[in-house]
Design a protein around this nucleic acid. Structure first.
Lengths: 125, 125
DNA sequence: TCCATTGTTCAAGTATTATAGAAATATGGA
DNA sequence: TCCATATTTCTATAATACTTGAACAATGGA
């Protein structure tokens, strides 16, 4: 992941409403939540919600799937995982903050576990 | 860490220049870098650099220490650590994306390792 | 003291982002 | 077909953030 793309992801999460939306979807699990339910939970007017959902979708942090009249949004765990990997890898390259082996290993292991668990969904791009 | 503060941190990192600055400082290690060196490396005019350094300082991601005529900036690893902890804890509360024990344990262990390594600097607030 | 260096603050212009009412689209049910 | 519901797109407005030249403050050396 290049710096520019990472900045886009971070900027997308760097807004209270969008972070709340994403948090909600992550906690909701892979099944996700229908848009109207998100708006109701967070008290956002429909156009505002739509604006933020579009932003999060555009950068690949969430995904919406049409389901009759509804649109069910769910978190893209793989993208988040990449972002965290980027941030933590960034954090031990200089062997400064933490003993390098510790941080990188756990990050790697976490990612490995993720792909093992849900093999179909999480492609390491 | 509350959501609002996390959003502030993410927004601070959600800008190409600031992310590059932070990345540079993290990789530079605890000794940090003098401001002019950052500007030279990234090709930023002094006022622009100052603006972004102030932003990153305000949210607590970096810290500047005066050193005769220079100001030496360094990354605040503890803040970054908290942010990552927030993001990953967020990621398994719903027991959705990963087997809960795996993620939470490694995150916790990483934090524990961090405090063990540099005991003076990293207070778990 | 005077000057060069380092960095910040000021000020003003530009650009981007957020908000939300109103209108439009799509779908399913009566 | 007609209507209610779910969601988006359009539009305008408001707010915030970014950039950078110019001026300013602080420091150390000649």
């Amino acid at each position: 992941m290049e710096t520019l793309n990472a900045a886009d992801l971070l900027a997308a999460l760097g807004h209270e409403s969008r972070l709340s939306i994403f948090r909600l979807l992550v906690e909701a699990g892979p099944d996700g939540i229908v848009a109207s339910a998100i708006g109701e939970t967070l008290g956002l007017p429909a156009p505002t919600l739509s604006f933020h959902l579009a932003h999060l979708s555009r950068v690949g942090l969430i995904r919406g799937q049409k389901e009759s009249r509804f649109i069910r949004y769910s978190a893209e765990y793989a993208t988040m995982d990449e972002l965290i990997a980027f941030l933590t890898s960034n954090c031990c390259q200089g062997e400064a903050c933490l003993p390098r082996a510790a941080t990188c290993d756990t990050t790697e292991r976490r990612r490995r576990l993720a792909t093992e668990t849900s093999t179909s969904d999480k492609e390491p791009s």
